[in-house]
Amino acid sequence: MAEATTRTAQKLFVFAIAMFGFGYAMVPLYDVLCDITGLNGKTGETTIAAVASGYVDKDRLVTVQFDTNVNTALPWNFKAIEYTMKVHPGEISEAVFVVENKSDKDIVGQAVPSVAPSQASLYFNKTECFCFTNQTLVAGERKEMIVRFVVGAELPEKIKTMTLSYTFFEAPDSEDVVFSNKSTVEAIDAKG
């Protein structure tokens, strides 16, 4: 009886530990699920070829608003040149943003995008974006960045306005990145 008990207990302990692992596995699993279904209000990274079917709906105009935020811990300025644009669904458009490092330190930032309303996020495709990678700004640097996007022609009729919002955060491993990127930064500096 004691042996049977030990066996039962061992199996159950293994099960408990596996469930602890499953808790962690949920993090990537959810992302996979969202990728497959294209849900969660995250906007996808796509190529021009995949979205520019060539069809542009000239009869419709959709207002795209831009919203820019900076996390309080990051000493940057971040603005859009134009805060609203009117675009035709299916057409490739470009918006320009300006970001400036107000501090006397080199900092790596990361912009996190989000689209509202969430149904619109399914049809909002970015083909190029400063948010796809970390952005490094040396002390006092100011630069322009672009996002190129297509609003899918299948966008439901009822959606007339959508908002693309960005929040810049300091990339968590900022110091390391600055260090390893030093040569690149210097190269850029040398070019002026």
């Binding site: 602890f20 499953f22 808790g23 949920m26």
Partner: peptide, 9 residues
């Protein structure tokens, strides 16, 4: 046994 470890995680 199935749920508590997930909370712990």
């Amino acid at each position: 046994i199935a749920a508590m470890p997930v909370l712990a995680g």
